[in-house]
Write a protein that binds this DNA or RNA. Sequence first.
RNA 1: GGGCGAGUGGCGGAACUGGUAUACGCGCACGACUCAAAAUCGUGUCCCGCAAGGGUUGAGGGUUCGAUUCCCUCCUCGCCCACCA
Length: 861
Amino acid sequence: MERYNHKEIEKRWQKKWKEQKLYETPDTVEGKDNFYTLVEFPYPSGNLHVGHWFAYIGPDIFARFMRMQGKNVLFPIGFDAFGLPAENAAIKRGINPREWTYSNIAYMRQQFEMMGTSLDWSREIISCDPRYYRWTQWLFLQFFKKGLAYQKETEVNWCPSCKTVLANEQVVTGVCERCGTEVEKRQMLQWNLKITDYAERLIDDLEKLDWPEEIKQAQRHWIGRSEGALLTFTIQEHNASVEIFTTRPDTLFGATYLVLAPEHTLIESLKDKITNWDEVEAYRQTARKKTDIERTALGKEKTGVELQGITALNPGTQEEISVWVADYVLSHYGTGAIMAVPAHDERDFAFAQKFNLEKVCVIEPRSLDDFTLRKMQGVSGEEKITGRAVAYWPDAGETPEHGFKREVAAILAGKSVYVGEGTLVHSGKFDGITTQEAREAITKAVGGEMKTTYKLRDWTVSRQRYWGCPIPVIHCAKCGVVPVPEHDLPVVLPEIDDFIPTGNGKSPLAKVVDWVNVKCPECGGDAERETDTLDTFVDSSWYFLRYTDPHNDKEFASRGKQEAWMPVGFYSGGAEHTTMHLLYSRFFHKVLFDLGLVADTEPYVRRMNRGLILGPDGNKMSKSKGNVIDPDDMVERLGADTVRMYLAFIGPYNEVGAYPWNPDGVVGVRRFLERVHVLVTKIAEDRKRLKDVSGGSVLIHRTVRFVTEVIGRLKFNTAVAQLMIQFNGENSEPDWRGKLNNKGEWESMEVDLMALKMFLKLLAPFAPHLAEELWYQLGNTTSVHLEPWPEYDPTLVEEEQVTIVVQVNGKTRGEFEAAQDIDETDARERALTLPTVEKWLGGKEPNKVVYVPGRLVNIVV
RNA sequence: GGGCGAGUGGCGGAACUGGUAUACGCGCACGACUCAAAAUCGUGUCCCGCAAGGGUUGAGGGUUCGAUUCCCUCCUCGCCCACCA
């Protein structure tokens, strides 16, 4: 008998499947529903690591399962091929980015094939292919025409030493990754997409999605909706005003100063009136140099400068208040200016403490409840009280009520911050009303407006990089920004040799004079091409649509083909894309919907973030740590089926866990597959042992039910466990598979052919090569992967006889066998008469008996 | 600092809507086969205890006849965000 030769088996079937085009998906199949399974397309970094395997194996199992369930399954693949690493490789090693990318893709393709994935390669897309990015450009133009793509001075990371713009990932703790120089902020004219216009819909439409709650929650936080008010403060004597945003207009009467962000334009316009301009300007300069990290890391200590010579009028109190500039106010959120209420905001409180500014308390907490007070055990037994903004220990012997009063006194005296709700005080005619009522009342009274703001900022898509999709616009001195006419698309990325940045912040493309200089499509005069390229997140914001119609050269995807497949039924990917890619592509899809280009407003029905595979030492795999598992090597030694099945077995696929690769764990799976191989091969050699019994054993039916249910929930690890139980047999069950004795010879038992076939079908999604091999060995002549998924017999899986557990006071003291549907009276009777139970009762009468039908009796004494 | 998630044997993990905690795999121990070893197969394997029995799902409290599961507090780890007015 031949040993389990995984190399030979896997290679042979991979070739056959390819010849048979087993996994090519037609757009429609008579009598079958379509189902779209998607995995984020990979970046062609060079080779597939174990993480890629893990990423694709789960969905591959699922896709194979869905196919056998009778669905016409789209499971496509492509490459997210633009991006920085290709350009870096070009600069460092003098390789052409295109060649680098395409040779990586070629290598990765054959690795994917080795995995035994059921991907449909006929629909492959590559985002750096002009046939693809032509449509990226076309879509960009649709955004532009709708006013959703615009140019604006936007902040970039600038390395003064390399004289280049840096991507966020090139800035490590505030310094340039390459040269270690401190990174500066610099304003540059950049293309942005107006995602903020869609903020509300992006939040509201989350409701209807079948996504894990934590992903939705993360997106809500990212978008960051907050309800508040815009209030206007006039600048005394200078005929100017400042608009501020606050979520707490009810605290207006406690606003004792204003703070402007260093970048606020008003500062510049009041230059003449500000008497300490030099000081102010110096502060602004320092703030500009600071990176975000510095602004926050040194962060707790507040800094700022008063704008001397100007004051503002608090529209509530009509009192003059001072105006400050401080970098704890962010220019890009709200209006870039705040009213500071030190008595009721922790940051303002800290600032006021430092600069000795007045604090006016305008809210009085009504009761303990306003503090959301909690009593708890302290270290030495005393009680600690926490409120929204306070946490303190009452003095010895003090009751919580005393502590509360003391704290209220501290708040009223301006010695403590209180950010909770309560009743207004020191607020003129508004005294006595609740903070909730006051929000709108005060806003109205001072002529402000209620306003919803979002943390979400517009999406800057300009990149000063070569290896990206060219932005299809032309700058004409006369006509301004002119879109490239659609019939001139694609704007092809020119082949160049010099990828070194220009030094003035422009993309290397700016040096390609022939390419840059064009005639204006409108006036025919001299004009220049835009030299920025698009963020790669733009490429990946619509790729799932292209898969539905990958070869279309008339449209980005025809409406009919889209509708055959969209929306994506199941989308699997990494947790790192929760707020970026997932949000961007949802935004894209909504815009396309509004343009009448797609049918749904949401692209993905179901989303799952997968876990992470760690090195054997429990750390993230990295070359420097030497804990990288090379999948090629594992496949060589153990076979793709083993690696696949081990990855399925390693932990629950639908949870964002981190699973260490255990080299010893893999051998367990390999041993299992070897046993399966030996068994089926032996049986196939000795056909007369096969017995075609109708029905199959009870165990196989239960296994079918279990595996079916669990694959649907993506708990592949338990499915594998059940397949092992099935194969090893269960003591209580008649052995379904025959048995080998110690010498590897058959005991004279017949094998249930039906059960064996069902087993191989269940195995097929996990170990597709081995299952196929054994399936043919049993005499079948068509692929196991084309078989319908086995069905279980519901009458067989229900147990008539069950074990009912008997507890006394919640502790298990015995059990008895009974019919599944035994009624309460009988169950109670049986339980009470068990000798062990009688012993534990010790003659006492039970107080109560709880009966859980078909499961347990709990006797309480 | 905030948000989200997780803590179960020596290890990865299982346990459906609260109902026999530790399935399955690894490891380990013993046994069979072998001259021997590897491989393979079999048996055992949460802890304490000779046993009867008792204890155990990060710690403490609560709800319940019954809690890994629900609630509260705390601790630890992971991820994301980080002065968002």
